[in-house]
Every structure is written in structure tokens, then in C-alpha cells.
Design a binder for these strands. Structure first.
Lengths: 159, 159
DNA sequence: TCTCCCTCGGCACACCGACACGCATCTTGA
DNA sequence: TCAAGATGCGTGTCGGTGTGCCGAGGGAGA
């Protein structure tokens, strides 16, 4: 299934304002609400839209510190990976975890209130992860780009 | 302003389903739609909720490859940072960019269709960034955790 | 301890808008 | 040229949303 530029316009609008009504979206995209409703439903049914979610301002919750954590395991055996991953999903401060190629086995993105709070997280969450050989943390000083969707998605018009 | 557990329940519901109506949310959280509407509006006005956005399934768009790119600049002068950042925000395949402490100056998260596509991105987007001394890429083999909000947020009940 | 006040929650109602249908028209592709 | 899918308009029904009012609970002050 190919998406035309109207579909992409709908998706772009919905990524910016997921609560917009059919009428509202229709006027923005430039079509009738009937056609828009049909296309939106098709986009949902075909799985292009996974969910509609509220974006919280994490700074309001005091989570102003982003830390990138590089982790190397003692062994890359399947059992060690499984044991590590089963525990890392339970860490409440971890928002992302990638299994990586290269020297580092995993890269985590951790959100903390401040540096002292990260020390606590390091002690109560990270240091308890199994099979870890080495942990290396880098602090993000500033977030230059933060997009949910790469702009390249909205640029590929097919029709 | 302190949030009680009902506020957190509302936020948790909205991060899972942002299009839920007042009536729907009210029954889930266990209160009347009137009270819920008041609280939801307060959460929006106080900035806890930044936006409502549709989450796209990027795999449906063929973006299955995540790459972490470490970039070191030739110099850390204010002018070099500004020049680099002004260009990196224009890269359509970059979804995140952090200014980092430590040896690497910037860390980017790039989405690509596959490895060949990343080669193209490297050539057309990354290698054109100004003042870059060194670029080092690591491929994510798998995404173990991907949360928009750390679960720790919904755990801190105040009242 | 009593009382006052303030805040929050719940109920009822009315209004407004969204949503889903049917049908005619148009465009696209073969 | 024809057929099939997409579009747009109109309409009716349904549901959500917002408001006003009342009651309950808790805190403060006398």
C-alpha cells in the first residue's frame, strides 16, 4: 500500500495534534470530513498509526537530566543477554535500551532528576543488573533535536 | 503543585490512549466525568501535558534500522557548536541529538531503512555537517526498551 | 469543641458538535 | 470507453462536553 501526500499530511497533523476532530483535520488537509474519516480509519487499520498518546513535559516532573549509559556484559552468551534484558525492562528510570553492535553491548537512556538522583539510580537500579562487566555513563548537557518521527517520513510523496 | 494518585492515573491513561473521552477516562480512573474534566484541564494548563500526538509505527514506513552516531568536533568553541547545531536540526533522518559531556561532543540517533540507506544518509546528511572531526556509528541490533515516559513518574503518589 | 469556609466531587440537563450513512459526481487507470 | 474506487454534500442520530447546583469532607480559627 502506497501513501499519497494527503495521507502524509494527515499523519503529520495527527502527530502534532492527535485530538483534532475530523472536521478540523479536514480543513487543514484540504478535503471533506467524510474522505478524511475514511483515510484516517484506513491508516489506523493498516497499522501506520500505532496509538494516540499524551506527551508529558518531563521537566515538569523534575526529570531534567538525561544520561546515556554504556554497558558491557561479562559474556555475550544467549543466557547472559536474556538475564540482563529481563532485569533491565524492570528498571523504572530506563526509557530506552538498545542491544548494540560493536564493543558496547547495550546502550541505555536514563532519565534522572539531577546528578545526585542519578547516583541513586546507579546504585539501586543499574548496579543490580546481572552479568554486567562495565558501566560507563555520559551526561547530556543539552537536547538539540528531539523528534518522535523523522521529517523524512512526511517528505516521500508517492502520488 | 503536587499530583495525587488520581492525577497520575489520568496521565497514565492518557499516555496510553490520548483520544479517550471524559466519560471513558472517568470510568477507568473511578470518578465522575465532571471531576475528571476539571483535573484534565488543570493538567493541561499547568503544562504537565505538552501535546497529544499520534505514534506512528516506523517499521511500517520501512525505518527498521536505528543507528547511534558519535560525533566529535574540531573545536568546542561556541561558534563551532552553533554552526553544527544549526545544520544538524535540518537533517531529516536525525530524530535525536544530544550535546554530551565527555570525549564525544554529540550523540545522534538516526533512523534508516537499512544499512545501505544509512550509507546514503551518512553521505548526504552527516558528512555535510560542519566542523566535524570524527564520526563513529554503531548499529542497534534490537530495541529492548522503548518508553515515552519512565515508569517512575507514575509511581510517586503524593496524596 | 464548635463553626465557618473553602475546595473538591457528583448529579442533571441542555446545547453543540462530531460521526456515520446514503447517494450523486468525479477521477483514475486499464 | 468503461469500470471501480475515491470524493463531496446533506442529513439524522448519537454522544460528549460544559454549566449550575448541591452535598461532603477537611482544615483553620475562635
Amino acid at each position: 500500500m502506497a501513501l499519497d501526500r494527503k495521507d502524509l499530511a494527515i499523519l503529520a497533523e495527527l502527530t502534532a495534534n492527535a485530538r483534532a476532530s475530523h472536521t478540523e483535520l479536514a480543513s487543514k488537509v484540504g478535503m471533506s470530513s467524510t474522505a478524511l474519516a475514511r483515510r484516517q480509519k484506513a491508516l489506523e487499520d493498516d497499522g501506520y498509526i500505532q496509538a494516540y498518546q499524551a506527551a508529558l513535559d518531563l521537566a515538569q516532573f523534575g526529570l531534567t537530566t538525561t544520561v546515556l549509559v554504556r554497558i558491557a556484559l561479562e559474556s555475550q552468551s544467549d543466557e547472559a543477554l536474556k538475564a540482563f534484558e529481563a532485569e533491565v525492562v524492570k528498571c523504572p528510570s530506563v526509557v530506552r535500551c538498545f542491544l548494540m553492535s560493536g564493543t558496547d553491548d547495550y546502550i541505555l537512556i536514563v532519565l534522572a532528576r539531577d546528578i545526585q538522583d542519578f547516583e541513586r539510580i546507579h546504585r539501586t537500579e543499574l548496579s543490580r543488573l546481572p552479568r554486567v562487566a562495565r558501566v560507563q555513563s555520559s551526561f547530556a548537557l543539552r537536547e538539540v533535536v528531539n523528534r518522535a518521527v523523522p521529517t523524512v517520513v512526511f517528505g516521500e510523496a508517492k502520488r
